[in-house]
Amino acid sequence: MFGFFSSNLITVVDGIAFGVLLFTIALGLSLVFGVMDVLSLAHGSLYLIGSYIAVSVSTAFTPTLGFFVLALVLAVALGSLAGAGLSFLTRPLASRGHLDQALLTLGVAFVVGDLLAQQYGREVRTVAPPSPFDGSVSVFGSTYPTYRLVIIAVGLALAIAAYLVIERTKMGALVQATVADAQMVRALGVNTGRLMTGVFAVGAALAAFGGVLGAPILNAAPGLDNRVLILGLVVVVIGGLGSVAGAFVGALVIGQVQTLGVSLAPSYAAFLTFGAMALVLLLRPAGILGKGRLA
């Protein structure tokens, strides 16, 4: 038993790195769904925009920490703008149900994907990790890239921050109340329009932030937007739509499924992610931490 753990410990660590990266995408997706009832299929595009910002910054400058932070700041700024834009685009469809929003946001995703491919080409683009973290360290006796430890640290900090904002601030309470019962919040005289735009902007900024953060390990290429989107959807569905803690738990679960799971059952690797999602949905249809809002 101990042998099993020691030989897989590094894989578990890597699963956490991957999981917290997924969390940056899933959190926005989940909040936007919870607050606005919008399943935004353009969320993967926001991630990819972030990755390409990292590409632009790292080709223009040397990959120092300062410029990496600059890329993060740019991504957050552009991401929030894009999110606010998406919120205006989807607003007129509020009464028309998920499928119309899916059609719209998928249309936006196609357009953005094409424009990015025109701008950056269809070849894979790589981003070097910021220079202080460009090497490897020894973790549990294995060589491990330092940058992935940075991802874990940043991702966990982000998760704690998100938790505090949602649980401890007035804004967070409003968001939670809107997830639970949007009509009630509106009836209380709250400007839900501003709240929704804000949540969409924050969610989009998070995805773009994740795009920069993930670029040094996942690169940037056309099609990555789709894969990230699908993983994000799997995470939020597993965790429970509209819940911060759910997105976090779901992200960690999928992170482990994609690393530890793959390592333990490589022949079934292709089935694992969707198998896990189907299993969770069948056992707990509202997700691991969902509150039973099924419809």
Partner: peptide, 12 residues
């Protein structure tokens, strides 16, 4: 299951 969960389960 219903709604979005139906959507995702069929996708899976």
């Amino acid at each position: 299951v219903r709604g979005t969960y139906f959507l995702m389960l069929t996708l899976a």
